[in-house]
Amino acid sequence: MTTPISVLLVDDQPLFRRGVRMLVDSQADLTVVGEASDGAEAVTAAAKHAPDVVLMDIRMPRADGIAGTRGILRSAEESGRTPPRVIVLTTFDLDDAALRAIRAGASGFLLKDAEPEFLLAAIRAVHGGHAVVAPGAIGDLLAHVDARPRPATAASSAAREEALGALSKREREIFTAVAEGLSNAEIAAREFVAEATVKSHVGRILAKLGLRDRVQVVLYAHDHGLLPRR
């Protein structure tokens, strides 16, 4: 029998946690292993229960979800544990707090009023190594709330080349396509290769650049001035 995906719930509202616990535990392949009411408790609970996935509210008293996400991933790295995937939950779309949580290492974000089926699918998706927000949506989020200027100097051009220096020509092409928000199927069609080949290339790109998922590819491209100008 396959081991269920273990989930840690982090939210300062007990009623919300209870509802999500009932939903998650109703699934044969999912199980809630612990709860926490703020980011600091989440770090302790994650170290104790070693969950596969953390559902993390962003706005909580004392320590918020951004601090919790950062602390959980840092604790796992320092102890040599496999870090959990973190999904942050927010009440506002295109939220700067969601972007800050993603920059802290979250694999994506969901609105707290998302359909139950979507929440369950998101847990399974991040456990499988995927992001729960389409990279294109992250691009919209960056454009909406992140005003940092993109590099435009000769020095920054050299930095961009150095950033991609570890990638082969084909990997650079696929990196750009991922950063633009294309799916594996869309990239395969554009590059005239099998979808499995694209998946392999994406895996190597993540490993070479030290990135966790496709969302981080978009952030990396943005921060190095590699996204197409809008």
Rank of each mutant, 00 (worst) to 15 (best):
T3F: 13
T3C: 07
S6Q: 04
V7I: 09
L8M: 07
L9T: 02
D11G: 03
R17T: 05
R17A: 11
R17Y: 05
R21H: 12
L23N: 04
L23S: 06
D25Q: 09
D25L: 10
S26M: 07
Q27L: 12
A28D: 11
T31M: 13
V32M: 05
V33C: 08
A36D: 04
D38I: 04
D38Y: 02
D38P: 00
A40S: 14
E41L: 07
V43I: 15
T44R: 12
T44I: 09
A45Y: 10
A45P: 05
A45G: 01
A45K: 10
A46N: 06
H49C: 14
H49F: 11
D52H: 05
V53G: 00
L55N: 09
M56C: 03
D57T: 04
M60T: 07
R62K: 08
R62N: 08
G65C: 06
I66R: 01
A67Q: 15
A67N: 05
T69P: 04
G71P: 06
S75L: 11
A76D: 02
E77I: 02
S79F: 03
G80C: 07
R81S: 06
T82H: 14
P83I: 01
T90R: 02
T90F: 01
D93Q: 01
L94K: 04
D95M: 05
D96T: 10
A98N: 10
L99T: 06
I102M: 13
I102Y: 01
A104L: 06
G105E: 02
F109E: 00
L110Q: 03
L119K: 06
L119Q: 11
L120S: 03
A121S: 12
A122D: 05
R124N: 06
V126N: 02
V126R: 01
G129N: 09
A131Q: 10
V133R: 12
V133L: 15
A134G: 10
P135T: 13
G136M: 10
G136D: 11
A137H: 15
I138E: 14
H144G: 06
A147F: 15
R148W: 02
A152K: 13
T153M: 04
T153V: 07
A154P: 00
S157I: 04
R160C: 06
A163L: 08
L164D: 08
G165P: 02
A166T: 15
S168L: 15
K169C: 06
I174Q: 11
F175R: 10
T176F: 15
A177P: 00
A177R: 14
V178I: 15
V178G: 00
G181P: 11
L182G: 12
S183V: 08
N184T: 14
E186Q: 15
I187L: 12
A188M: 09
F192C: 08
F192S: 14
A196V: 13
V198K: 13
V198L: 09
K199T: 14
K199F: 08
R204D: 13
R204Q: 12
I205A: 02
L206M: 14
L206Q: 07
L209N: 05
D213V: 04
R214G: 06
V215E: 00
V215N: 14
V217S: 12
V218E: 09
L219Q: 03
D223S: 13
D223N: 15
H224Q: 13
H224G: 09
G225F: 07
L227R: 09
R229F: 00
